[in-house]
């Protein structure tokens, strides 16, 4: 998957967790919790969806690497290349 594909997939999972978000309005640097208003339950649901969709373990220690779409795409790219 290209970073662009990954971004599309990540945004799709994000919208599934928070259907009221407008996919077009989400910036790569938006903080999921501070800017987009996700709470800890939403974030856990997002991690669960990414875990299932990409078959990655995503331990809690890696949560700080998922705080914005840009960081998340970089993280997913790195993990999937392993």
């Amino acid at each position: 998957m290209t970073p662009s594909d990954l971004r599309t997939a990540f945004i799709a999972e994000l919208i599934a967790v928070a259907p009221d978000l407008d996919p077009v309005a989400i910036a790569d640097s938006d903080h999921l919790q501070d800017d987009l208003g996700l709470d800890s339950m939403d974030f856990l649901n997002l991690v669960s969806a990414l875990h299932k969709g990409f078959r990655l373990p995503i331990p809690e220690a890696d949560y700080p690497r998922l705080t914005t779409p840009a960081k998340a795409v970089a993280y997913l790219t790195e993990m999937l290349a392993r």
Partner: peptide
């Protein structure tokens, strides 16, 4: 932290 380390995300617990 210890408990969640051994669990898949959909079985992790929140402080809440």
């Amino acid at each position: 932290t210890a408990r969640n380390a051994e669990r898949a995300p959909d079985r992790r617990l929140l402080m809440g």
